[in-house]
Nucleic acid binder design. Structure first.
Lengths: 227, 227
DNA sequence: AAACAGACCAATATCAAAATGGTTTGACCA
DNA sequence: TGGTCAAACCATTTTGATATTGGTCTGTTT
């Protein structure tokens, strides 16, 4: 027993030294198991035991067909938004929106440019004049996207894009109760409030207006299920 | 002149009718241009002009090699984090973290489970005992990821993953000034504060502790450039 | 009983060929 | 002269067959 345990730790150290000598880069790929076990002079079973320990420590991660990689964790984000859409309940989506979009409105008020504001104004206007739910949703979507663009932060814009795709694919098909959006749709005033606060360069008011808008959207969409 | 303008709008209407008759699904793919122009009985040039107008309206989007798709906007998120990493300056990354992570801490305090807390405690402990910067960063990363997991929101977790990947790839290689992390590293107390607030189920305090931590990280990392 | 080598499996990468949106060219026509 | 059209060409992406890779099982050996 002691003998085999010593051997196991010995194999792990052999592997550790190999990684240190090679000065593996982050996310660098290790040689395939079949090559590596030969290179280290140990059997594939021994090698796999050592790899398993390093994986448990979070030093490497493995994936069938791809290989073994040096790094702290497997990359969970699959970019398969369809997968996310299936996994996410609508309440999760609205929760994520309420966590992120007010902050984006805040940054939009701080960093937005004149052309950002013009685009937002255009979206608000076309949203009001929409004669079809599908067109309305399109410009409502463009409005929120314009706010994201106004943050002037490419990373935030990208994150919002994925959030937005998931939102659209979960909400799509809902809201067919009425054929046309009403003239006095509640969102119109809320859009105006968000727009005004951002143009006034008032971050806190912009965030609060966005929260109010999202609360309204949430209550309008999920009230049937809540009560 | 009037004649050609009329023809142009006529082509657009022809295309609109085609889409309505087919009842295109969201993100549905249109036939290839070469087939569609034949099917509609117009030249490819005319078809492309009509498609261009619909694209300007945000009704469709096109991509070389992929096709023409029905939907409000091109899908910007390429999931190519490497691209984002090149496009994003470090200040954008820290800005995005300060926008999102405090909200996640808040939700973690609301929704976290006992096993989430245990994982967070483990990360904090192993972070303190790290004898190497790389190991320290690994457990610091795991700690923030545990907070994301505690939100119990798959969408937020996924968004945080991409944010995190970009962060790691831009920050990687920095911070080689000292060989080992100091025993009294400032982040240790900050991690404790975040962990305590979350376990105490105090959302506002958790968010504030996270903001403090991120401010500290930002000042420590980018002070050389700011002054 | 444990370790090993080989074979097999499912998932992924790889690479050439086909497909697709975008552009240019030259002929044709009003 | 200005516009239209068809064909060719380009860069990018998809597709499909093949090779590669981590994970697993089996029979043999020690």
């Amino acid at each position: 027993m002691v003998r085999s345990a010593q051997d196991a730790t010995k194999d792990v150290e052999l592997l550790r030294n190999f990684l240190n000598d090679r000065e593996m880069a982050l996310n660098g790929r290790l040689p395939p198991e079949r090559s590596l076990c030969e290179e280290l002079g140990i059997s594939r079973g021994k090698l796999r035991n050592a790899l398993a320990q390093l994986e448990a420590e979070g030093q490497i991660w493995r994936h069938v067909g791809r290989g073994t990689f040096f790094g702290p964790r497997p990359v969970l984000n699959l970019s398969e938004v369809e997968y996310l859409s299936e996994q996410c309940r609508p309440t999760e989506v609205i929760e994520a929106r309420m966590a992120i979009e007010p902050q984006m409105a805040k940054l939009a008020a701080l960093h937005g440019t004149a052309s950002n504001f013009a685009e937002m104004r255009r979206c608000v206007r076309l949203c009001k004049s929409a004669k079809d739910w599908r067109v309305y949703e399109s410009w409502d979507n463009n409005f929120h996207q314009a706010i994201a663009a106004a943050t002037c932060n490419k990373l935030l814009i990208s994150l919002f894009d994925t959030l937005n795709i998931v939102r659209r694919s979960t909400v799509w098909g809902q809201m067919r109760a009425t054929r046309l959006p009403p003239k006095d749709h509640k969102s119109f005033a809320e859009h105006d409030a968000i727009y005004d606060a951002i143009v006034d360069r008032d971050p806190e008011r912009a965030a609060e207006a966005m929260r109010t808008h999202l609360r309204s959207v949430r209550d309008r969409s999920y009230k049937p299920f809540d009560d």
